[in-house]
Nucleic acid binder design. Structure first.
Lengths: 343, 343
DNA sequence: GGGTCGTCGGTAACCGGTTACCCGACGGTC
DNA sequence: GACCGTCGGGTAACCGGTTACCGACGACCC
């Protein structure tokens, strides 16, 4: 069907080595020879066979990115950024979805696709503390997540505790005292949920306040529907609230939706804060105050760390479990605005 | 580093052919032999080298999906559905982004990644009528889009004209007469924009109405920000409106946001309809009436058509440019609700 | 009991690149 | 004019699977 390097070599009257030298931009090829080869390639419409190259080199040029779900805005935006960063370094990204389910997250580590990619950027959300040993894998991997889970695997973390704490402090600073917590997490989990909750509780404690469990709306899956349901749960208990901290933006958006259904206005009656800074939060009504966790930096850093491992050769193994914590920023928007003084 | 089929064969005391037979689930392998081989595989932790297999078989087991942008909800949801459908058939999906830019869409057709995948599901949005010949490619491809662009390439289309017409008729049926059109498109384009606009105009014409160009808000890039800007444009002209048809959901969401900024309420003052039925539209405030274009069916059908081409062998070339048009459904939600009669 | 058929498994060529190693040619030096 | 160093370019082995072809062995039949 398609032509091979041998065909090109024959047509150009050179050897396969020379063709290889040309396509790989090796030095030490005379201009005349180069031209001959390029002409032949053009004439035959030659395109390199990627499988053969991979087999020979022992690398595929692909990185895998494993995320819970692509349809969650945070992860689709993250994927976009990872793809861009990888592209800059000559890598192609293969996305895998785990559904945020522990079994499927563990499967990712042993998947057949590990043999199709040179390395993995893995964002687990359902693994537990006891799973740490399973992360000691033999292939290059960079984790997106919390330090609690892994010992010697390099990873890029976000400031979950500090971010949630800052968000909560912002609510406190604007006079709110009865803050609902929307979204929960697997008790054995070590993911963002427990850390963000920690930051929330820390801020309350520092202000001498205690969290009333009746103000917690549970929802392990973080999407709009569970956000709405969790909010409904809290409201149905008849407990008074003047603010909401949601564990992420989509939960917050679902919660806002539910508040409106109940005739409560944001931010006049209830202030709302999210976490993630997805694009939608800038266009919701009202726009959502949220924690920007440094997602572009996370994507870029993860790719850089992984590519570095890949190109470092033998020295790769020696590297200690590197950790980078991205810088966060609180994006204050309408959902936590104070009533105008004039009022 | 890792072990090969030869190693397994040696340890199991059989030949590579037998190992191959076992891992590929060929019949005619005695249970005892199978067990020996599986034990050896287990013992060595053998995993097949994917590149070698691809080289030998001449297929990679990967399908490419080229979309404008993953961060647009419509495409992240579509990607999820395509990945699921491909997985069911044993294929892995590689996502490529074109940014909705014509040059990059053309690049996709010649990309190095074509050699890494067995086929392509391509959703072009910026190609023009004159580009049709460029789509006569030598590799298996299924297009997501409009029939106007391609002659003999199999494709899966959505009912853009009929869907937009139904949406517009719904607005007319609820008494709206001064409908703004939000979003525009490349005049030379043949994408969804022109077709949806066509459906809109058709519906108006059928009702004996004419569209006032002052009610068109332009925005070629379809996202929330342009939706808001387009709405602002229309409102700033001082022209009266009682409804909005946006060319897709994110434009509609941006437009709603802008209407609120101007103190207009939806649906009391202005009714709004979108197109795509992204998940967010069910949770916006108010929830958005929209056209559900049959996206799951589109994803499934596209994968089925492509896989069929791939497995059909030589007969593949003979197939005529198959076309499937997905069934749409108008999802009526709050954004077009009639004021309650009691009022 | 010998021949034939069917089953199971071995051998080796092949997929299409990369690259270690080698050689030939050419320019420069004494 | 002979020798040496340098550099462009050729040959062939190798990456790790798949598979055409072939041989061996057991069962079944006459």
């Amino acid at each position: 069907m398609s032509s091979t390097m041998r065909d090109v070599a024959r047509l150009a009257g050179v050897s396969v080595k020379t063709v290889s030298n040309v396509v790989n931009h090796f030095p030490h090829v005379s201009p005349t020879t180069r031209t001959k080869v390029l002409t032949a390639i053009d004439q035959l419409g030659y395109q390199m066979n990627h499988a053969a190259r991979s087999l020979s080199l022992g690398r595929t040029g692909m990185l895998a990115l494993a995320v819970p779900e692509l349809r969650l805005p945070y992860f689709s935006e993250l994927s976009d950024e990872v793809i861009a960063a990888a592209q800059d370094r000559g890598y192609t990204v293969l996305i895998e979805q785990t559904g945020g389910v522990r079994e499927r997250e563990l499967e990712v580590l042993a998947s057949e696709r590990r043999r199709m990619t040179d390395g993995l950027i893995f964002s687990p959300v359902a693994l537990r503390a006891g799973d740490a040993p399973l992360l000691e894998v033999s292939f290059p991997m960079v984790l997106l997540g919390e330090r609690s889970l892994h010992s010697r695997v390099p990873h890029v973390a976000m400031a979950n505790v500090a971010g949630a704490r800052a968000a909560t402090e912002h609510l406190l600073a604007t006079g709110r005292r009865r803050i609902a917590l929307i979204g929960s997490f697997d008790a054995e989990g070590v993911g963002a949920g427990s850390l963000r909750t920690q930051g929330f509780l820390d801020a309350l404690a520092a202000a001498g306040l205690e969290h009333d469990p009746a103000r917690t709306g549970s929802g392990v899956e973080w999407n709009r529907a569970t956000g709405a349901a969790a909010m409904r749960q809290v409201l149905s208990r008849g407990v008074e609230i003047d603010a909401v901290l949601a564990l992420n933006d989509v939960l917050a958006l679902g919660a806002m939706r539910e508040l409106f259904e109940h005739g409560l206005s944001v931010p006049q009656d209830v202030a709302v804060v999210g976490f993630d800074d997805i694009e939608e939060s800038r266009f919701s009504r009202p726009s959502l105050t949220t924690v920007e966790p440094g997602r572009p930096q996370i994507a870029r850093t993860a790719v850089e760390m992984l590519v570095e491992r890949l190109t470092a050769g033998e020295s790769a193994a020696q590297g200690p479990g590197q950790e980078v914590v991205a810088e966060f920023r609180l994006e204050v928007r309408e959902s936590t605005a104070l009533p105008t003084p004039a009022r």
